[in-house]
Nucleic acid binder design. Structure first.
Lengths: 112, 112
DNA sequence: TAAATTTGTAACCTGTAAGTTACATAAACC
DNA sequence: GGTTTATGTAACTTACAGGTTACAAATTTA
């Protein structure tokens, strides 16, 4: 698995990875603790975590023989910017519709 | 290609599909017009468009022998909700940090 | 120091996403 | 009606993501 192939969008495309991010939003956890809550094997979870780390969604802190995963905002920014673009698209779309309605409903110029 | 396997997150995971969405944000376009702007074959683009349609990111209107693609807000909502959750996470995180700093900086109770 | 715990990773298997080419179909145009 | 244009889709190939098992390494604990 070549981590360099991954970007933010691919990182959150996998349901297991999104589940991991959710779990970490309630509490930072060690890799094994995370793996225990999954139906897939520990190495599989380990790979997912590596993807999330390499794409900036989490950081990992060594604590003795355990490694704790913590959410990292950096990974989310690319997605956020992408969403912002389209949120804006829909907003301006709505505004121009609004303007159109206002115009066609506005009182006609009084003749004379 | 079984379209039913796709969800919103997978839909936007592919760079070509994101590019199509961008293109459509400037102007609605026919499928062939879209395909002409790509390095991949027309059938490949056609498949991407099918994915975007089945996941609610675009709708398709028949106009004579052409089919025009138009952005559809529905597809974006799932992503948006997901982002909202984590935006909120970071906001409350920031707030509690702020509260903590305020507290530790607040003037100590005057003795006596 | 030996045993248990936590994690990393190599080697392998499998399904399928994403691309291709070739052919079919339907509308528009002459 | 025959040709051109726009699109759909079937059949096939290839790369690789995501899973597994097995083993290694490092730290903690007894």
């Amino acid at each position: 698995m070549n981590i360099s192939n991954y970007d933010s969008f691919i990182a959150i495309a996998d349901p297991h990875r999104r589940q991991i991010l959710r779990m970490l939003s309630s509490k930072e956890q060690s890799i094994n603790t995370i793996a225990e809550n999954f139906d897939i094997s520990r190495p599989a979870v380990s790979k997912h975590i590596k993807v999330l780390e390499s794409t900036g969604f989490i950081t990992i802190e060594d604590r003795g023989r355990e490694r704790y995963c913590v959410l990292d905002q950096r990974g989310f920014t690319e997605i956020q910017e992408w969403m912002n673009y389209f949120e804006n698209y829909w907003l301006t779309k709505l505004k121009s519709l609004d303007a159109y309605l206002k115009k066609s409903n506005s009182p006609k110029k009084r003749k004379r």
